[in-house]
Amino acid sequence: MIQALFLSPVFSPLFSPLFSVVSHGLGPVFSWIFWILFVAGVGWVFWRTIKGREVERRVIFLMMGLTVAGAVLTGIVLPVQETVVVRNIFDTIENLEEGDKVLLSLDYDPSGAPELQPMAIAVSQHCLEKKLKICYMTLWGTGGAMIADVITAIRPDFPELVYGEDYCNVGYRAGNEAVLKVIATDFRKTFPTDVSGIVLDSLPMMTGVTACPDFSYIVAIGSGRPGIKEWVEYVVEPSGALMGSGAAAVSAPQLYPYYPQQMNGMMGGSKGASEYEKMLRRGYPKYGEFRAQATEIMGPQTVAHVFLMLLIIFANISFFLAKKRKGASA
């Protein structure tokens, strides 16, 4: 009964442009409770601000936690706008020809995974849809697990994939920048074998690959050092390979200088990932919204953003009020 009320035509159109709710969440009743609590909490913080009191950090922590937790539980999905920077990567892969080889480097660890794993998965899915061949590698010791996770995630969609023919995983080699320096000109020197010790020459897809530029496209997804900057410096600049990248939101702004000369596109944070997911969804409708990991993250992120913006506004109101009071008393 209550559910029916919330789902009634009176309410849903009101909010549908704002957000929609995915099926795995706790449902509309909970969303309403959540929004009421959210507004009440923000109102309380605002009230304290007006009264000229500082909000204690723990209250901010609590509000932040409740906001994100609530948004996760309700499963809010927000509309995504596409940008050219991401579109370039999508278009490059879209325009490659069947059988072309793509090198996917996943240079991050589990802490970067929420943002970056969706990119790796979306790019992999796109490549495989286009029947491109993917070679996975990583510069991070902890990246091996990330590659394994990506492969596990994409396998069910492509049961006919053959290891060594359609994709391969050369894994991790220690040496950071040195690895890149070498593979820019000689791929096999650093990666004579794949991750499980199979000689690279015996993998059909790797015949003809001697150096990084032999890949039609390189997608470096990374969250630190060694990462995208090193890829640009040690591979793209000396060898002229074509590269796109996926960066954690935190490092994206400082990688902008490399776009568009050294890399033709960049996905920044989950925003970039969700854009890519959206493009993928449009081209290949079988990837529904429910399976778009980054898109799922965007909802809670935006709610947290609203909260943070309100906090900053309140902080300034309280600051000016305090200044005024001080001025009046003086």
Partner: peptide
């Protein structure tokens, strides 16, 4: 901010 919140979401 965006990226940090995504970690918490994870």
């Amino acid at each position: 901010v965006m990226g940090r919140v995504s970690l918490l979401v994870g």
